[in-house]
């Protein structure tokens, strides 16, 4: 800014330093794990900062990639993410569009009924019983359907649709398009940033799905990546608690390699969406 005194400049310097430091501290644990994952198992992990690897080896990854359970879990997670996100987007977009039409009789009541579920719920056990009654236990559906619509995402999507000028839809209506046609030909193409944001939110929560998997899936064949990862970590944790001497004997690098294998897809994909979701959330914030 144009004229600024010494105090203001000092503030700027300290501020930049602080922000940079915060970012580094946030990022460091990931970096540390990456380094540990490529450190030879025999070498042992030295205490202190792991800024650069001394020797690089991919033996942990080699070991990991030949585990059958990893591949089957990866497949399940990809399946749950792709199909689950598709189902969620389908239901969310349709409902959000319908609810963005204020002239729709009953829309206020329906909206309230939906928002109310954010404040009150039956609880873990009744939810479990529903999934059980539907025969979904130990199926991939149990990891997608019970959280198919996240109310927050629905509200965000609706806010976005509300911001689209009515006049754009009018012309299509005059041309005799019905609601499905308008949604498909006009509204969706105009809403790509919001759709990308919400698809990312859904995809990430399906990819990270843990709670529903723990509750509803006991069959190892259907374990998603998160459960596989947890079992890998637990093996070490057991040693960690009894005696607590050296969890690293059990292959800390393998553990960290497992973490990298499941975190990397998210870390790669999410920055591409950042532009969109800042926009998406901005809209939600203004409209509410």
């Amino acid at each position: 800014m144009a004229h600024s005194g010494f105090g203001s400049k000092l503030f700027d310097v300290l501020n930049y330093l602080f922000l940079a430091l915060t970012a580094l501290v946030t990022l460091y644990p990931f970096w540390d794990s990456l380094i540990v994952s490529i450190t030879p198992m025999k070498e042992g992990i030295s205490a202190g900062l792991h800024l650069f690897p001394k020797t690089v080896t991919f033996e942990a990854y080699q070991y990991l990639l030949q585990l059958e359970q990893l591949w089957s879990s990866y497949k399940i997670s990809v399946l749950v993410t792709v199909i689950g996100t598709a189902i969620s987007m389908f239901a969310t977009i349709l409902a959000a569009y319908a609810l963005s039409k204020k002239e729709l009789p009953g829309s206020r009541v329906i909206m309230f009924t939906i928002v109310f579920t954010m404040m009150f719920g039956g609880g873990i056990i009744p939810n479990f019983l529903v999934v059980k009654q539907l025969g979904m236990l130990n199926t991939v559906w149990a990891m997608m359907i019970p959280a198919a619509i996240q109310t927050y995402n629905l509200i965000l999507m609706r806010s976005f649709f509300l911001s689209i000028p009515e006049s754009l839809e009018e012309s299509a209506k005059i041309d005799g398009c019905h609601d499905f046609g308008i949604l498909l030909k006009i509204v969706i193409p105009l809403s790509m940033p919001a759709i990308a944001t919400i698809a990312l939110f859904y995809a990430v929560s399906r990819w990270n799905e843990f709670f529903m998997a723990v509750m509803y899936v006991t069959d190892k064949q259907l374990w998603p990546l998160q459960l596989f990862l947890r079992s890998m970590l637990m093996e070490n944790e057991a040693a960690f608690q009894s005696g607590g001497d050296s969890p690293f004997l059990l292959g800390q690098s393998i553990k960290m390699a497992t973490i990298m294998v499941s975190a990397i897809p998210v870390m790669i994909i999410y920055p591409f969406f950042q532009r969109y979701f800042v926009q998406g959330v901005t809209l939600g914030a203004i409209k509410e």
């Binding site: 990022l27 540390d32 794990s33 973490i259 975190a263 998210v266 920055p271």
Partner: peptide
């Protein structure tokens, strides 16, 4: 970009990172 990142990472992974970071003998 950096500070948003952990939000997108599951608790299982974060737990693993924490164990790595906080363990008694090799943790930073």
């Amino acid at each position: 970009t950096i500070v948003y990142l952990p939000h997108f990472i599951s608790w299982v992974i974060m737990g693993g990172l924490l164990i790595n970071l906080l363990s008694a003998d090799g943790g930073v």
